[in-house]
Simulated assay, not measured.
Amino acid sequence: MGRAQRNPSRALKPAVLVALCLALTACAWQVPLRTSRAAAPPDGLSFLKPGTRYPTLAPLMRRVTPAVVNVAVDAVVRVEKNPLLKDPDFRRFMRHFGQEVPQEGDTERRQSVGSGVIVDAGRGYVLTNQHLLEGATAIEVTLKDRRNYRARLLGVDDDTDLAVLQIPGVAITPLPFGDSRALEVGDFVIAIGNPFGLGQTVTSGIVSAVSRSGVGDADLGELVQTDASINPGNSGGPLINLAGEVVGINTALIGPSGGNVGIGFAVPSNRARAALARVLKRSGGG
């Protein structure tokens, strides 16, 4: 092993490495088309860019992204307990710069942004995260084509941190649910959402683990772990497979700075579908 490292003539040159990576990538994208029905794109789509041998997800994204929405929330929430609020030096500092010092028990207005996915276009049902809607006084849903709708909260499901919104019916193809029980470590997945309020964003990765539990402060049950970039604002957006099916609803991440470090989590689609049914049953279907 040491001899190979010292002898440059036995090391692959950078150009050769790049060519090898491209060849392996092309093979990885082409093989599922021939051998795996589960990984095949929807009817009429291809993973190869027209006129080339390069892989692309663009045709699939054109089909699925119209069903992914941005969710903006106006909320009134209670001021969280913070020891700084009792620190006289901190209070003087705030007053010196003309800032109001909040008191414990006070309420304050907040705005937050997240994501959602249309699961029934005719009835206008949108699936999103419950934690995004805490204290909501107004909820606005924006489609990819920039149409805006005031949304109504039909109900929430505490066990999965999911919520169902309703907007007027829209002429959009809703995203179907896939079978999350079929997910395996290494499966390709795509996360779509509204990170940091930037607008619709697509990231890709693989399933890093299945049946993860004990994530975060709340007991959300078993989750799908992925390295597809999930950031604040992605909450409520779909995790989809290469067939354009929802296999999870993005809901949490682990990151020391609050950003992505390659460890994100989604509620499996089978649990999300059951939560949707429960909420609609309790609400009378809107």
Score class of each variant (00 low, 15 high):
residue 92 R to L: 11
residue 265 F to I: 03
residue 215 V to E: 13
residue 112 S to V: 05
residue 159 D to G: 14
residue 79 V to I: 13
residue 250 N to H: 04
residue 221 G to F: 05
residue 266 A to Y: 06
residue 221 G to N: 05
residue 24 L to A: 15
residue 96 H to N: 06
residue 158 D to P: 06
residue 253 L to D: 03
residue 199 G to L: 01
residue 86 K to N: 15
residue 252 A to C: 06
residue 192 I to E: 02
residue 94 M to G: 07
residue 218 A to P: 02
residue 3 R to G: 14
residue 239 L to T: 04
residue 123 R to Q: 13
residue 32 P to E: 00
residue 19 A to V: 02
residue 93 F to M: 14
residue 278 R to I: 04
residue 193 G to P: 02
residue 107 T to E: 13
residue 259 G to R: 12
residue 104 E to Q: 06
residue 76 V to P: 01
residue 26 A to L: 12
residue 19 A to D: 06
residue 108 E to V: 12
residue 82 N to K: 00
residue 32 P to R: 08
residue 275 A to L: 02
residue 251 T to V: 13
residue 140 E to R: 15
residue 223 L to A: 03
residue 80 E to G: 14
residue 228 A to H: 09
residue 159 D to S: 15
residue 230 I to E: 09
residue 278 R to T: 11
residue 264 G to D: 01
residue 45 L to F: 07
residue 43 D to F: 03
residue 183 L to I: 10
residue 8 P to Y: 10
residue 129 N to Q: 06
residue 86 K to S: 15
residue 141 V to M: 10
residue 137 T to M: 04
residue 141 V to E: 06
residue 132 L to F: 10
residue 12 L to F: 12
residue 261 V to L: 10
residue 22 L to F: 11
residue 211 S to D: 14
residue 66 P to R: 11
residue 24 L to S: 14
residue 231 N to E: 11
residue 51 G to C: 01
residue 116 G to C: 09
residue 236 G to F: 10
residue 259 G to A: 14
residue 215 V to S: 10
residue 141 V to H: 04
residue 96 H to W: 09
residue 155 G to T: 08
residue 19 A to R: 11
residue 181 R to Y: 13
residue 44 G to M: 06
residue 65 T to I: 01
residue 177 F to C: 09
residue 145 D to L: 06
residue 277 A to G: 12
residue 222 E to S: 14
residue 278 R to K: 13
residue 198 L to M: 11
residue 120 D to V: 08
residue 87 D to P: 03
residue 258 G to N: 08
residue 62 R to L: 13
residue 270 N to E: 10
residue 223 L to R: 04
residue 114 G to R: 08
residue 203 T to F: 02
residue 25 T to C: 12
residue 35 T to G: 00
residue 269 S to Y: 03
residue 30 Q to M: 13
residue 79 V to Y: 02
residue 146 R to D: 12
residue 92 R to M: 09
residue 92 R to Q: 15
residue 69 V to N: 03
residue 245 E to Q: 15
residue 57 L to Q: 04
residue 213 S to L: 05
residue 147 R to K: 11
